[in-house]
């Protein structure tokens, strides 16, 4: 392992449990590179996760790490951040964890604009349980619980985050690691709820069943369909179909929850003489 990043991993826990070609490891690398670039104090940085493939990441990360229950990572993280606001709190979650079972916590954490850095690893499938369709599986996806094809429409989790009140929303992918690191870094710098959707890939349960090719093919697909908003705007109409916009999608600073709560404490103590 490159010594530049080794300090951020529990190297003795590697290799990790993820399948060959799963891009979760790539996304985790971007997270630690962003932490490194931001110069965060490793002892004051906490990684919280829920349940699912991506939520196993904190076990490999050399910080205080909290692996919680399915869908609830944001609620646990809210407790961590509010109880000790000086901590830098990251949440690693998946498409099922964040937008299905944890959907309520997602919109409310965004609404509060509490200073959490949330990275959603979107692989469009429930991997840990063997390939069931998720809220981000595109319509038509084949999955073990959608053998005739998924008839549900998928969430755009970035639009959901923005609508719910997140002050920073971005999307990246496992192919463009420089961009991914950069948008996570910008999220860290935003004092508020920062939501980053990282397109990940599951070659074993999603790719194989949906004929997406091997691990490298799935990354190349990301390379081909992901464009920045500026590049998208320059595209002729007929080339826009199927494109996925990446980069910073929304950034509008808002009052941050724990900072506002500090004012409550001041008010309560002042009022009490």
């Amino acid at each position: 392992m490159n010594p530049e990043i080794a300090q951020y991993y529990r190297v003795n826990k590697l290799p990790h449990i993820w399948c060959p070609g799963c891009s979760n490891g790539i996304v985790v690398r971007s997270i630690v590179e962003a932490i490194d670039k931001a110069g965060l104090d490793q002892d004051k940085t906490v990684i919280v996760s829920g349940i699912g493939c991506s939520s196993r990441a904190p076990g490999y990360m050399n910080f205080d790490t909290l692996h919680t229950t399915h869908g609830r990572a944001l609620a646990f993280a809210t407790g961590v951040k509010l109880a000790k606001p000086e901590l830098n709190v990251f949440v690693i979650t998946g498409d099922g964890d964040c937008t299905a079972i944890g959907g309520n916590h997602f919109i409310h954490a965004a609404r509060r604009n509490i200073d959490l850095n949330v990275i959603l690893f979107n692989n469009n499938i429930y991997g840990m349980t063997g390939g069931q369709y998720s809220p981000t599986s595109p319509t038509g996806t084949k999955a073990t619980t959608a053998v005739y094809g998924n008839i549900e429409r998928s969430f755009d989790s970035c639009k959901l985050a923005q609508t719910a009140g997140a002050s920073y929303v971005a999307r990246g992918n496992a192919f463009n690691t420089r961009q991914l690191t950069d948008i996570i870094l910008k999220g860290i710098e935003n004092p508020g709820f920062s939501f980053i959707e990282a397109l990940s890939s599951c070659p074993v349960y999603y790719g194989r069943r949906n004929k997406k090719g091997g691990p490298a093919d799935m990354l190349k697909w990301q390379r081909d369909v992901c464009v920045t908003q500026a590049a998208y705007d320059r595209l002729p109409e007929e080339k826009r179909a199927g494109k996925i916009i990446t980069g910073v999608l929304h950034h509008e600073p808002q009052p941050e929850y724990t900072a506002e709560y500090a004012k409550i404490i001041e008010k309560a103590q002042g009022g009490n003489g």
Binding site: V48, L66, T68, A75, F76, A77, V80, A83, K84
Partner: peptide, 16 residues
């Protein structure tokens, strides 16, 4: 936002 989240936040606070 709900009872589940309340319990989760309590645990998160306690580990700090």
């Amino acid at each position: 936002e709900d009872e589940i989240a309340s319990m989760a936040a309590v645990i998160g606070a306690s580990v700090t």
